Amino acid sequence: MIRLLPWLLSIALTIYALVDCIQTDDARIRNLPKLIWLLLVLLFPIVGPIAWFIAGRPQRGEGGSRPGRGTTHPPPPPRGPDDDPDFLRRL
């Protein structure tokens, strides 16, 4: 069983990198075109996925690899009723 562990880890890393590369928008991939990254991940099982995570995947500051997970501003702090113009108009 221990002899299978490196193979299973290699396959899992390759599959994860492959799915991540496929789901990433073409315009946000760094350094190489998406097709080249896919070939690197598939042809070089350990080196390809590691290279993808280091040099090809979008950086976190760019919004991550999933849509809708971009950087957002925190909501404004709550205001008291005397600072809310709508509340004062209703009085």
Score class of each variant (00 low, 15 high):
11 I>W: 09
24 T>G: 01
68 G>A: 02
47 V>T: 15
67 P>M: 01
50 I>D: 01
43 L>A: 15
21 C>P: 00
83 D>Y: 09
71 T>E: 09
8 L>V: 13
60 R>A: 14
78 P>N: 08
27 A>Y: 13
14 T>W: 04
72 T>Y: 08
71 T>H: 07
55 A>S: 11
27 A>R: 15
28 R>V: 07
26 D>A: 10
74 P>K: 06
89 R>Y: 11
50 I>H: 03
82 D>K: 08
68 G>I: 00
67 P>V: 02
77 P>Q: 10
30 R>K: 08
35 L>N: 04
35 L>I: 08
86 D>Y: 13
4 L>K: 11
41 V>I: 15
11 I>E: 09
18 L>R: 06
27 A>L: 15
85 P>M: 04
16 Y>N: 05
58 P>W: 01
77 P>I: 09
69 R>Q: 11
45 P>I: 05
85 P>V: 03
23 Q>M: 10
5 L>P: 02
91 L>K: 12
46 I>M: 14
83 D>M: 14
47 V>I: 15
51 A>H: 07
18 L>E: 03
19 V>G: 00
41 V>Y: 01
35 L>H: 04
30 R>V: 01
85 P>T: 02
39 L>R: 06
26 D>R: 11
80 G>H: 12
38 L>N: 00
13 L>H: 02
10 S>Y: 04
34 K>M: 02
37 W>G: 00
52 W>P: 00
5 L>D: 06
72 T>K: 09
90 R>T: 15
75 P>L: 12
85 P>S: 04
3 R>T: 13
28 R>I: 05
43 L>Q: 11
32 L>T: 00
77 P>D: 10
65 S>H: 02
29 I>C: 04
18 L>Y: 13
51 A>R: 07
56 G>A: 06
27 A>N: 15
76 P>W: 05
13 L>W: 00
14 T>G: 10
9 L>M: 11
44 F>I: 14
17 A>Y: 00
55 A>Y: 10
2 I>W: 07
1 M>I: 15
